[in-house]
Protein backbone atom coordinates (compact mmCIF):
# COMPACT_ATOMS: atom_id res chain seq x y z
CA UNK A 1 0.00 0.00 0.00
CA UNK A 2 1.33 3.42 -0.93
CA UNK A 3 1.96 5.95 1.82
CA UNK A 4 -0.20 8.96 2.39
CA UNK A 5 1.55 11.90 0.66
CA UNK A 6 0.37 14.22 3.44
CA UNK A 7 2.01 12.11 6.10
CA UNK A 8 5.34 13.83 5.49
CA UNK A 9 3.89 17.07 6.84
CA UNK A 10 2.97 15.66 10.23
CA UNK A 11 4.54 17.42 13.16
CA UNK A 12 5.51 15.35 16.16
CA UNK A 13 7.30 15.90 19.40
CA UNK A 14 10.98 15.03 19.80
CA UNK A 15 12.41 14.47 23.23
CA UNK A 16 10.92 15.53 26.54
CA UNK A 17 7.96 17.89 26.93
CA UNK A 18 8.80 21.53 27.41
CA UNK A 19 6.25 23.83 29.03
CA UNK A 20 6.44 27.62 29.14
CA UNK A 21 3.82 29.13 31.47
CA UNK A 22 1.72 26.04 30.91
CA UNK A 23 2.06 26.26 27.10
CA UNK A 24 3.57 23.31 25.29
CA UNK A 25 6.68 24.49 23.46
CA UNK A 26 8.31 21.09 23.09
CA UNK A 27 10.90 20.49 20.45
CA UNK A 28 9.28 19.03 17.34
CA UNK A 29 10.61 17.70 14.07
CA UNK A 30 9.68 21.08 12.56
CA UNK A 31 11.66 22.94 15.26
CA UNK A 32 14.59 20.58 14.78
CA UNK A 33 14.82 21.43 11.07
CA UNK A 34 14.54 25.14 11.87
CA UNK A 35 17.55 24.71 14.16
CA UNK A 36 19.41 22.69 11.52
CA UNK A 37 18.70 25.36 8.88
CA UNK A 38 19.86 28.16 11.16
CA UNK A 39 22.96 26.14 12.04
CA UNK A 40 23.75 25.69 8.32
CA UNK A 41 23.40 29.42 7.68
CA UNK A 42 25.63 30.22 10.68
CA UNK A 43 28.15 27.65 9.45
CA UNK A 44 28.07 29.20 5.98
CA UNK A 45 28.81 32.66 7.36
CA UNK A 46 31.25 31.41 9.99
CA UNK A 47 33.32 29.65 7.32
CA UNK A 48 33.10 32.64 5.01
CA UNK A 49 34.08 35.23 7.63
CA UNK A 50 36.69 33.07 9.42
CA UNK A 51 39.53 34.62 7.49
CA UNK A 52 38.39 37.68 5.60
CA UNK A 53 40.71 38.83 2.86
CA UNK A 54 40.71 41.62 0.32
CA UNK A 55 41.12 38.89 -2.30
CA UNK A 56 38.36 36.56 -1.13
CA UNK A 57 38.36 32.78 -0.83
CA UNK A 58 35.63 30.52 -2.26
CA UNK A 59 33.19 30.67 0.65
CA UNK A 60 33.87 34.36 1.22
CA UNK A 61 32.94 34.96 -2.43
CA UNK A 62 29.65 33.12 -1.85
CA UNK A 63 29.01 35.19 1.29
CA UNK A 64 29.67 38.40 -0.60
CA UNK A 65 27.54 37.24 -3.54
CA UNK A 66 24.58 36.72 -1.21
CA UNK A 67 25.20 40.14 0.35
CA UNK A 68 25.43 41.76 -3.06
CA UNK A 69 22.30 39.98 -4.31
CA UNK A 70 20.19 41.07 -1.31
CA UNK A 71 21.66 44.57 -1.36
CA UNK A 72 20.71 45.02 -5.02
CA UNK A 73 17.27 43.58 -4.40
CA UNK A 74 16.62 46.04 -1.55
CA UNK A 75 17.96 48.97 -3.58
CA UNK A 76 15.77 48.06 -6.56
CA UNK A 77 12.56 47.53 -4.61
CA UNK A 78 12.75 49.77 -1.55
CA UNK A 79 15.52 52.23 -2.33
CA UNK A 80 18.38 53.47 -0.21
CA UNK A 81 16.10 54.33 2.72
CA UNK A 82 15.66 50.62 3.35
CA UNK A 83 19.39 50.11 3.96
CA UNK A 84 18.99 49.83 7.76
CA UNK A 85 16.71 46.81 7.21
CA UNK A 86 19.33 44.97 5.15
CA UNK A 87 20.21 42.44 7.86
CA UNK A 88 16.56 41.64 8.48
CA UNK A 89 15.78 41.03 4.80
CA UNK A 90 18.98 38.99 4.43
CA UNK A 91 18.01 36.89 7.44
CA UNK A 92 14.50 36.43 6.08
CA UNK A 93 15.71 35.37 2.64
CA UNK A 94 18.37 32.98 3.91
CA UNK A 95 16.10 31.51 6.57
CA UNK A 96 13.33 30.68 4.07
CA UNK A 97 15.82 29.51 1.42
CA UNK A 98 17.56 27.25 3.89
CA UNK A 99 14.27 25.81 5.19
CA UNK A 100 13.13 25.15 1.61
CA UNK A 101 16.43 23.58 0.55
CA UNK A 102 16.83 21.40 3.64
CA UNK A 103 13.31 20.13 3.03
CA UNK A 104 14.38 18.74 -0.34
CA UNK A 105 16.68 16.15 1.25
CA UNK A 106 15.15 12.70 1.59
CA UNK A 107 13.78 11.91 5.07
CA UNK A 108 14.00 15.58 6.05
CA UNK A 109 11.13 17.89 6.92
CA UNK A 110 9.93 20.96 5.01
CA UNK A 111 9.24 23.57 7.66
CA UNK A 112 7.83 26.05 5.13
CA UNK A 113 5.10 23.58 4.23
CA UNK A 114 3.56 24.39 7.63
CA UNK A 115 1.00 27.18 7.25
CA UNK A 116 1.51 28.29 10.84
CA UNK A 117 5.22 28.86 10.22
CA UNK A 118 4.75 30.85 7.02
CA UNK A 119 1.87 32.76 8.55
CA UNK A 120 3.92 33.62 11.63
CA UNK A 121 6.77 34.82 9.40
CA UNK A 122 4.38 36.89 7.26
CA UNK A 123 2.82 38.33 10.43
CA UNK A 124 6.25 39.35 11.72
CA UNK A 125 6.79 41.18 8.41
CA UNK A 126 3.31 42.69 8.49
CA UNK A 127 3.63 43.97 12.08
CA UNK A 128 7.20 45.16 11.49
CA UNK A 129 6.29 47.05 8.31
CA UNK A 130 3.25 48.65 9.99
CA UNK A 131 5.38 49.79 12.95
CA UNK A 132 8.02 51.20 10.55
CA UNK A 133 5.24 52.98 8.64
CA UNK A 134 3.88 54.63 11.78
CA UNK A 135 7.34 55.55 13.08
CA UNK A 136 8.30 57.08 9.75
CA UNK A 137 5.01 58.83 8.88
CA UNK A 138 3.11 59.05 12.15
CA UNK A 139 -0.68 59.04 11.78
CA UNK A 140 -0.10 60.05 8.16
CA UNK A 141 0.64 56.39 7.49
CA UNK A 142 -3.13 55.86 7.45
CA UNK A 143 -3.14 57.76 4.14
CA UNK A 144 -1.95 54.49 2.62
CA UNK A 145 -5.64 53.50 2.65
CA UNK A 146 -6.66 56.64 0.76
CA UNK A 147 -5.43 56.55 -2.83
CA UNK A 148 -4.99 59.94 -4.46
CA UNK A 149 -7.13 61.06 -7.39
CA UNK A 150 -10.18 59.03 -6.36
CA UNK A 151 -13.64 60.73 -6.51
CA UNK A 152 -14.95 61.53 -3.03
CA UNK A 153 -18.09 59.45 -3.36
CA UNK A 154 -15.98 56.35 -4.07
CA UNK A 155 -13.70 56.90 -1.08
CA UNK A 156 -15.65 54.87 1.53
CA UNK A 157 -15.66 51.86 -0.76
CA UNK A 158 -12.02 52.27 -1.79
CA UNK A 159 -10.84 52.70 1.81
CA UNK A 160 -12.58 49.46 2.81
CA UNK A 161 -11.02 47.67 -0.18
CA UNK A 162 -7.59 49.10 0.68
CA UNK A 163 -7.88 48.03 4.32
CA UNK A 164 -8.90 44.52 3.30
CA UNK A 165 -6.06 44.48 0.75
CA UNK A 166 -3.58 45.60 3.41
CA UNK A 167 -4.81 43.07 5.96
CA UNK A 168 -4.69 40.28 3.40
CA UNK A 169 -0.98 40.81 2.84
CA UNK A 170 0.18 38.33 5.51
CA UNK A 171 -2.36 35.81 4.26
CA UNK A 172 -1.26 36.06 0.60
CA UNK A 173 2.39 36.08 1.60
CA UNK A 174 2.11 33.03 3.81
CA UNK A 175 -0.28 31.02 1.65
CA UNK A 176 1.89 31.53 -1.45
CA UNK A 177 4.96 30.03 0.19
CA UNK A 178 3.05 27.33 2.03
CA UNK A 179 1.03 26.24 -1.05
CA UNK A 180 4.08 26.09 -3.29
CA UNK A 181 6.07 23.96 -0.87
CA UNK A 182 3.09 21.77 -0.04
CA UNK A 183 2.23 21.14 -3.68
CA UNK A 184 5.82 20.40 -4.69
CA UNK A 185 6.48 17.95 -1.89
CA UNK A 186 3.11 16.25 -2.31
CA UNK A 187 3.83 15.76 -5.99
CA UNK A 188 7.27 14.35 -5.19
CA UNK A 189 5.79 11.92 -2.71
CA UNK A 190 3.03 10.83 -5.11
CA UNK A 191 5.48 10.24 -7.95
CA UNK A 192 7.85 8.50 -5.55
CA UNK A 193 4.98 6.19 -4.60
CA UNK A 194 4.33 5.49 -8.28
CA UNK A 195 7.96 4.51 -8.81
CA UNK A 196 7.76 1.91 -6.05
CA UNK A 197 4.29 0.69 -7.09
CA UNK A 198 5.05 0.33 -10.79
CA UNK A 199 8.32 -1.50 -10.24
CA UNK A 200 11.30 -1.79 -12.49
CA UNK A 201 9.50 -2.06 -15.87
CA UNK A 202 7.22 0.99 -15.86
CA UNK A 203 8.67 2.74 -12.82
CA UNK A 204 11.25 4.63 -14.85
CA UNK A 205 8.53 6.92 -16.20
CA UNK A 206 7.45 8.39 -12.84
CA UNK A 207 11.11 8.26 -11.77
CA UNK A 208 12.09 10.56 -14.63
CA UNK A 209 9.17 12.82 -13.68
CA UNK A 210 10.45 12.78 -10.11
CA UNK A 211 13.92 13.85 -11.20
CA UNK A 212 12.47 16.69 -13.27
CA UNK A 213 10.25 17.64 -10.34
CA UNK A 214 13.21 17.77 -7.98
CA UNK A 215 14.96 20.16 -10.35
CA UNK A 216 11.80 22.24 -10.47
CA UNK A 217 11.50 22.14 -6.70
CA UNK A 218 15.05 23.45 -6.28
CA UNK A 219 14.08 26.36 -8.51
CA UNK A 220 10.81 26.86 -6.62
CA UNK A 221 12.65 26.74 -3.28
CA UNK A 222 14.90 29.59 -4.39
CA UNK A 223 12.14 31.48 -6.16
CA UNK A 224 9.73 31.38 -3.22
CA UNK A 225 12.41 32.64 -0.82
CA UNK A 226 13.16 35.42 -3.28
CA UNK A 227 9.47 36.28 -3.79
CA UNK A 228 8.90 36.38 -0.03
CA UNK A 229 11.87 38.70 0.45
CA UNK A 230 10.96 40.91 -2.54
CA UNK A 231 7.37 41.31 -1.38
CA UNK A 232 8.61 42.16 2.11
CA UNK A 233 10.82 44.84 0.54
CA UNK A 234 7.88 46.18 -1.48
CA UNK A 235 5.73 46.39 1.67
CA UNK A 236 8.65 48.13 3.40
CA UNK A 237 8.91 50.52 0.47
CA UNK A 238 5.20 51.38 0.85
CA UNK A 239 5.77 52.12 4.52
CA UNK A 240 8.87 54.22 3.87
CA UNK A 241 7.72 56.19 0.83
CA UNK A 242 3.90 56.23 0.97
CA UNK A 243 3.01 56.00 -2.71
CA UNK A 244 -0.70 56.74 -2.28
Amino acid sequence: MAENPMEQFEVFKIGPSLLLNGTNVSLTNSSLFMIISVFLIILFFALGTRKLNIIPGKIQVLNELVFDFISKMINDTAGLDAKPYFSFILTLFLFILSLNMVGLFPYSFTVTSQIIVTFALATIIFIGVTIVGFIKNGVGFLKIFVPSGIPVFLLPLIIVIEIISYLSRPISLSVRLFANMLAGHTMLKVFGGFVVALGIYVGWLPLSFSIALIALEILVAFLQAYVFAVLSCIYLNDALHMHH
Binding site: V11, K13, V25, T28, S30, M34, S87, T91, I116, V117
Partner: peptide
Protein backbone atom coordinates in the same frame (compact mmCIF):
# COMPACT_ATOMS: atom_id res chain seq x y z
CA UNK B 1 2.08 22.14 17.93
CA UNK B 2 1.28 25.57 16.52
CA UNK B 3 2.47 27.47 19.59
CA UNK B 4 5.60 25.32 19.82
CA UNK B 5 6.40 25.99 16.15
CA UNK B 6 5.82 29.74 16.53
CA UNK B 7 7.98 29.70 19.67
CA UNK B 8 10.89 27.94 17.96
CA UNK B 9 10.43 30.01 14.81
CA UNK B 10 10.78 33.23 16.78
CA UNK B 11 13.78 31.91 18.71
CA UNK B 12 15.66 30.56 15.67
CA UNK B 13 14.75 33.43 13.34
CA UNK B 14 15.70 36.19 15.76
CA UNK B 15 18.82 34.33 16.91
CA UNK B 16 19.91 34.17 13.28
CA UNK B 17 18.96 37.82 12.78
Amino acid sequence: FWIAQIFWLIITFFLLF
